[in-house]
Computed example of a mutant assay.
Amino acid sequence: MHSTEEIRHLLSNWGELRPQDSCLWTGEANALPQEIADFYAQIGPWGAVIYESVGPVGITLSVGGNPVCIPPLGRLFNLQAGYAWQSDPGQPFDSWSCHWLVIAEQGGDPFIYDRQSGQVLFAFHGAGHWAPKVFAPDLYTAIGALVTVANVHERLDEQELNLDDGLTAEGKAQVLAELSRFTGSAEQAAAMLSAWEYYE
């Protein structure tokens, strides 16, 4: 398990962090998992405030292709729209598990916290049904992994990053190596990238 301090340090390079009380969650109080509440209270992805009337926009990670967006707690409930329901939380989609909570998204593809297992899943939208795969065993591993990949991607030079075809073999090797160091397991790192279909 990765520490609060480690994840806070990783995220701090990507935007402002600010402790956020669970009262900022706009859904039903019992629908906010304690691990998510603790994540926002202790780490608190906040991001920039571009317009005062809009408030904080959260943290955006550049990972190649579409960025990964992690909202502040005040926007987390509204992020569920389009996944758990269309326009009314009281009329949820049958295809969406009541145990799932979207915690981040990449071009509409959700990273999902499973309230039952504590795992973080990843799924592609637009397939007609949801078929999420396990991305990480817990929330901190998921967030830390995403930031680790973003950090590597930011350091890649033009020889390792082909903007037309994605990462070169050398770039892919760097991502895998850094993610393996973060997770402590090359096998786990490879499984995470596979579930995310990061190289494809």
Rank of each mutant, 00 (worst) to 15 (best):
G144A: 08
L76Y: 01
A195W: 01
W14L: 07
N151M: 11
A123H: 03
W85E: 03
N162E: 14
G126H: 01
A173H: 12
H125V: 03
D38R: 12
A104S: 10
H9N: 15
P110W: 03
L101Y: 00
F122S: 01
G15K: 07
S22A: 15
S95Q: 14
A29N: 12
D165E: 15
L121A: 04
A104V: 04
E6N: 09
G58H: 00
W100T: 02
S53R: 15
R18G: 02
A190S: 13
G144F: 03
Q80L: 03
T148G: 02
Y198S: 00
V49D: 02
D94G: 00
I50T: 14
N162G: 09
A84Q: 13
E16N: 13
D21S: 11
Q86M: 12
V63L: 14
G64Y: 02
N162V: 08
N30S: 15
R18T: 09
H9A: 15
Q116H: 10
T141V: 07
S180L: 11
E6R: 14
A81M: 12
D164L: 15
D21T: 10
E187M: 08
F124G: 05
I112H: 02
Q116G: 00
S62A: 15
S62C: 10
N13V: 07
N30T: 14
Q91A: 14
G171S: 07
P45E: 01
D94I: 05
W100E: 04
S185P: 09
G64M: 06
P132K: 05
R18V: 08
H125I: 03
G107A: 04
I103R: 02
T148V: 07
R181A: 14
V149F: 02
G27H: 03
L161A: 10
Y51E: 15
W85A: 07
E35C: 07
S180A: 15
F39M: 09
S87Q: 12
V134D: 00
Y198N: 01
A123G: 06
H99K: 12
L167R: 10
T141D: 05
W85M: 03
E178F: 11
V57W: 03
E187N: 09
S22H: 11
A186F: 09
Q106P: 01
L193T: 09
T183D: 08
P89D: 07
G171P: 04
A150I: 04
G64L: 05
S95V: 13
A81G: 10
I7T: 04
I143Y: 05
P71K: 08
G126Y: 05
G44M: 03
F77W: 11
A145E: 01
G118R: 08
P19R: 05
G15Q: 04
G166R: 07
I50F: 11
A104Y: 04
Q119A: 11
A131P: 00
L193I: 03
A186V: 10
